[in-house]
Design a protein around this nucleic acid. Structure first.
Lengths: 193, 193
DNA sequence: AAAAAATATCGACAAATGTCTACGCTGTAT
DNA sequence: ATACAGCGTAGACATTTGTCGATATTTTTT
């Protein structure tokens, strides 16, 4: 079964028929990108949101000193893109690149809106995703402002064990808002327990 | 003109008639709460989202040591509530209380869904708000993990000058994820500029 | 196989932040 | 008028985190 088909029906309450899925899929563009290649670069407008069929990606930004700050991590069945740029057609401040060779299904803003209005299951999916994302974002903010780095890491491992497997520690450190050295120290403490 | 009427028409593309607004308003419950009173307490289920007609409120959580961590600030024309609890009917981990005497318009999950399905302008409002909230949350996460406390504060003042007027520094410090002492130090630096 | 790049850890030191106590100021309640 | 609580700042000290250089190991490239 196609990963996207499975994914949509996992969210929607009214199941999508094979035919309807064909209609949905016809609005996506298949794309393979290699490790280190960009899906989006700072300054570009995010024209497509990408559903990750296979692979691992990250979204990050660069500070004045050229340091990378990882904002999001993605693996299979996640969506990669910069929402603000996608919705408002403004140049993005983020970079999105592939951490592993990846296979994506791209959809434009226009087709996204078309699918939402013409396919109720797809619309339902998007609404639920939005809700989920809002809740997840709230949790991440809460974690960032109220937890110690040690607890943030433990929380992260518990909630995203698949990320721990697929991204190196310095990427995870950046995602947690600390340096790789600090994460190394934190891990030493945590492992002792 | 009623603040909520003005607010909805500010977001919706198709304007709401006076009659339709009456229909919308009939699903809201008016409530006044005094400074320090709770709209929501940890452990409760968030049964209502509150549109703030007048006043100032905050959402925060308590850590093991009893310390408060401010997660959100609200003033007029903002919505106060815990989305996760509201949507999933789970006990909230947050507290929401009034920082100033406030007037709210409360709406239940049920009525919210009813309004969304029966009033297109209201639905449009909610969708746009969700989008806005998602984007704002992303920015706040980015700010938390990639900026120094000094820049976070400058960013905050620039983006939310009305908050600076209405909440004391120790509340703002908590919102930014630092102690009041640190914010005091940061401000001393910033003012020198 | 050899060379290069990426990764993780460590120690030493510096910088940032938290913690605690104290002080003065303000507005409010009594 | 007095007492009190809330607020912002300050200094001293402890803790955490960042920075930098070094190293060992692994992985990737040539």
């Amino acid at each position: 079964m196609h990963p996207l088909f499975h994914y949509i029906n996992n969210y929607a309450t009214t199941l999508l028929s094979k035919d309807d899925f064909g209609f949905v899929l016809s609005h996506f563009i298949s794309k393979k990108i290699r490790r280190r290649q960009y899906l989006l670069q700072e300054g570009e407008i995010c024209k497509y949101f990408g559903f990750i069929v296979k692979g691992a990606m990250r979204k990050y930004l660069l500070d004045e000193k050229g340091g990378e700050h990882v904002v999001d991590l993605y693996v299979e069945n996640w969506w990669a893109g910069d929402r603000e740029s996608f919705v408002r057609f403004t140049p993005s401040t983020y970079n999105i690149d592939a951490w592993e060779d990846s296979e994506l299904l791209l959809v434009s803003r226009e087709d996204m809106l078309k699918l939402r209005s013409e396919c109720p299951s797809f619309n339902e999916l998007v609404l639920k995703l939005d809700e989920y994302n809002n809740i997840a974002a709230q949790k991440r903010i809460t974690s960032a402002i109220s937890l110690t780095s040690e607890k943030r890491y433990e929380d992260f491992v518990e909630r995203h064990p698949y990320f721990v497997q697929r991204f190196p520690q310095h990427i995870i450190a950046s995602y947690l808002g600390v340096t790789k050295d600090t994460l190394s120290r934190v891990r030493k403490k945590v492992i002792k327990k």
